[in-house]
Write a protein that binds this DNA or RNA. Structure first.
Lengths: 191, 191
DNA sequence: AGCATTCTTGACCGATCAGTCATCAATTCC
DNA sequence: GGAATTGATGACTGATCGGTCAAGAATGCT
């Protein structure tokens, strides 16, 4: 019953995700989002509550997409190092639409987590999911004999997480840096 | 001639550096800075011009301190790997005052560089200085026979830069993460 | 058709933002 | 001591912020 919604909330979240990812939470105003979504002020508030909730929706969408892609890649058969190589090169082999798009989860971590315990806790849980995915893949590599038995999977997973974040950050700033893909390949040499 | 200044501009820049590093550019208001510095509004504007210029001053101070420390460390004698190990562990061995302090240069890169060509260019130059410092140290390691002759110094320097940034970011979010120092040590294994 | 419900719209709100400026206080030079 | 200069101060400005709300439009139920 009632009037039917004239926009797709998902596409709004998508656009919010891009806007927040480019400019950050504080620097992205509601007015900015309204211009990009062609929505009236009240419609946006009616659908999402407030700015913070919209950001959370964008954050969760970002996480879901990222995590799913990673899960699918990691579930593939074949050498673990080949999978990790693909994973590490992912920021470079896609001709990304918006090159200055930073990882929304890290943006949230830096900008909001310090004064928002709820987001802080959610982020910690989310990051652990990625960490666990990495640990599992590394354990698989150890079990198959591909990786050396002495490898500490938890430490190595953290190392890979850091490396990935570093690569993505640099890529955001220097979209054309020639050495970055080669640097991504170097990461694997430590395993 | 004229009245003498009652505050030290440097200590104001110092406090601005910390505030911007904790909350970012947009989310740190002039009012916030006034409260922390106990300055009157007009004094701050009189001394620094506007918010952006104060941020630049803070950014340059951050860069100067960081770069100087790195230069001094890299100038030391001894094995290159030992120096790099110290460098990579630096985020962990200091009992830092504010753990949620993010690298101001990356903050600037993410928040301002996209719409501020001047800061963007300055940052690119600054990052290249760090990159060059790393390249020089690696070349020294190659010349002394410590590092393998086939090592591509430029790529390796980029790899180290990414790793450092990743480690620092993670440390900002998880000040107590036990695996991080061990992960920092792993970075060197790729060389 | 009439009513309840939901969405759309944009005017509107108080708070806060970055930045200005007139006034006053301190210092130096003569 | 008086003139000139510079810093200190906080009230003030216009713009923008996030968020609200009353009015109108579209839908489904009876």
């Amino acid at each position: 019953m009632g009037r039917t919604r004239e926009f797709s909330p998902e596409s709004v979240v998508q656009k919010a995700m891009v806007a927040f990812g480019q400019n950050g939470y504080t620097a992205t105003s509601i007015t900015d989002l309204l211009e990009e979504t062609h929505l009236a002020r009240g419609s946006l508030y009616g659908a999402f509550g407030d700015k913070r909730q919209l950001f959370r929706a964008a954050l969760e969408k970002y996480d879901q997409e990222n995590f799913q892609a990673m899960e699918q890649l990691f579930a593939k058969r074949g050498p673990v190092k080949k999978i990790l190589s693909k994973w590490l090169n992912h920021p470079f082999d896609t001709t990304d639409v918006c090159t200055r798009q930073a990882c929304l989860m890290f943006r949230a971590a830096m900008e909001l987590a310090p004064h928002d315990p709820e987001i802080d806790q959610w982020l910690k849980g989310a990051f652990e999911r990625y960490q666990n995915l990495l640990v599992k893949l590394l354990q698989r590599g150890k079990a198959s004999g591909e990786l050396r038995p002495g490898l500490n999977c938890k430490v190595a997973a953290r190392y890979l997480g850091c490396s990935m974040h570093g690569l993505k950050s640099m890529r955001t700033m220097y979209p054309d840096c020639a050495e970055l893909p080669a640097a991504a390949q170097m990461v694997l040499k430590a395993l």
